[in-house]
């Protein structure tokens, strides 16, 4: 590797790798590739003395088979656009690209499968359909207001709940809280955001702080997947977002959404809701109140359904905080 001038892997890049493989001819390295979770990484081959592409295909096959042994059949890769073709030849499909790179996926459970499981209503192509993507960690009155408003202004609203288990409330808990919190709104469908909306895969800096240009790249990819694959398929014409006064990442994300989604999808930005005393409602504050044992104050911020859940599970939530789960993120 060093003879080819490839030596600048940072600690952050290397620590997430689960496995690395290499092809050798006597002691010379001809090709290598790695896996981290369900993502193929750092694939490099030397085409000297071989049929172009053959080492590449060998490496990728081996990585896919290694993942299959672990029960992972849905594989992603991020790559520069000039290498995209090589992956497309072996069955990968592009999800989105930006100037910096593209994301492709391969396997049985692809985005078409995901979308085919999203519930539809009759005559959806003639309805006005809106979408909201939320982490709802936990579901607050602010979220409720946003959904209510979208439900009033549209025939159908999809609420996509971010799928990740790296924060205080688990995916299934957050999903349950959103479903209960909007149960009375008949034109709202709550859907699991899967791997495609603000996921740990496409948008890791939502969960881990990162540099601005990285956030821009990731949010652009996220916005384009939403625009090109999801909104078009479900006839979504509007996306509702809340203004972001605090988080830098969400602030950039909102700006990128406004740049990328129109004209196909209109972005509707609603002002943040305040509680009776005039302080802005955020889920971050709610998590901090839980940490500070301030249960009473929470009821100003969250609907009854969420409040009841927090009350019932207070000990467990507190135990998670004590085990050191991050409550400061998004």
């Amino acid at each position: 590797m060093k003879s080819l001038g490839i030596s600048d892997f940072s600690e952050q890049e290397v620590e997430k790798i689960d496995e690395t493989i290499g092809i050798y001819k006597s002691s010379k390295l001809l090709g290598t590739g790695s896996i981290a979770g369900n993502v193929l990484k750092y694939i490099g081959v030397c085409n000297e003395d071989t049929v172009p592409g053959s080492s590449f295909n060998t490496i990728v096959s081996e990585l896919i088979n290694k993942l299959a042994q672990k029960g992972i059949f849905h594989v992603f890769v991020f790559t520069k656009r000039k290498y995209e073709k090589s992956f497309q030849y072996i069955g990968f499909n592009e999800l989105a690209y930006s100037k910096k790179g593209a994301i492709l996926e391969s396997g049985a459970a692809n985005i078409e499968t995901y979308l085919s499981h999203v519930p539809r209503v009759t005559n959806q192509v003639h309805k006005t359909v809106a979408a909201i993507v939320m982490n709802a960690n936990p579901f607050t009155k602010g979220h409720r207001y946003l959904v209510e408003r979208a439900a009033r202004e549209n025939d159908l609203v999809y609420v996509f709940v971010v799928n990740n288990d790296v924060s205080l409330f688990s995916t299934s808990e957050r999903f349950k809280l959103v479903t209960r919190g909007v149960a009375d709104l008949k034109n709202v469908i709550v859907v699991d955001g899967g791997s495609y909306m603000v996921s740990y895969l496409t948008f890791p800096s939502y969960f881990l702080p990162d540099k601005e240009d990285k956030i821009k790249y990731q949010t652009t990819i996220d916005a384009r997947i939403f625009r090109n694959k999801i909104a078009s398929e479900l006839n979504i014409k509007k996306r509702y977002i809340g203004t972001e006064p605090f988080s830098k990442t969400t602030g950039i994300y909102n700006k990128v959404l406004k740049d990328e989604l129109p004209p196909r999808v209109t972005v509707v930005e609603a002002a943040r809701q305040k509680d009776d005393t005039g302080s802005v409602i955020t889920a971050t504050k709610v998590r901090k109140m839980i940490a500070a044992n301030n249960v009473k104050a929470i009821c100003n911020f969250v609907p009854q359904t969420t409040y009841k859940f927090i009350e019932d599970n207070f000990a467990e939530l507190h135990a998670r905080i004590e085990r050191g789960i991050n409550i400061n993120g998004n």
Partner: peptide, 19 residues
């Protein structure tokens, strides 16, 4: 019963995934 894969992406082969 479960998703399964066989084969490779090398020349003269075929990769089959069943789910």
């Amino acid at each position: 019963k479960r998703t399964a894969i066989a084969g490779t992406l090398e020349s003269s082969d075929i990769q089959i995934m069943l789910s």
